[in-house]
Amino acid sequence: MTNKEYVEIINRVSGTDVQKCMKCGKCSGRCPAFKDMDIKPHQFVSLLAKGKIEVLMESKAIWNCLSCMACVERCPRGVAPAAVVEAVRDTVTRMQGNNGIKAEEIPPIVDELIPQQLLVSAYRKYNK
């Protein structure tokens, strides 16, 4: 697949129009994962607009975004940075061997209290 095809698909799957971004940075200002986002939400949006997807696909940001929707809430231009991050993560995890969580990593970290909801949501977010 060509880079152009990837860019097209990620844009479509995100359901958001990154060209509308005016680079105000409000999304990043509100992001609770800011420190752990190696590519900040506003940079994530503008890198996709420029078609630079390799760096997005290799980022830590796709694993640290909390899908908390704070960025979406704040954006004055109706852009959804969270959906852009998710579209890139989906594209990565859908490739064979690219799941974010390996089954064998789970048992050691499962404790008495862990709710099913955590396991289900992490699997849904990180694995395909």
């Binding site: 752990d36 694993w63 909390l66 704070a70 970290i109 955590l118 977010k125 990180y126």
Partner: peptide
């Protein structure tokens, strides 16, 4: 109304700890 760290607990435990 700030996120607690959600499912990232399973991937990067430090983030939910801090949050």
């Amino acid at each position: 109304n700030e996120c607690c760290g959600a499912y990232v607990s399973l991937k990067n435990g430090n983030l939910p700890k801090e949050k």
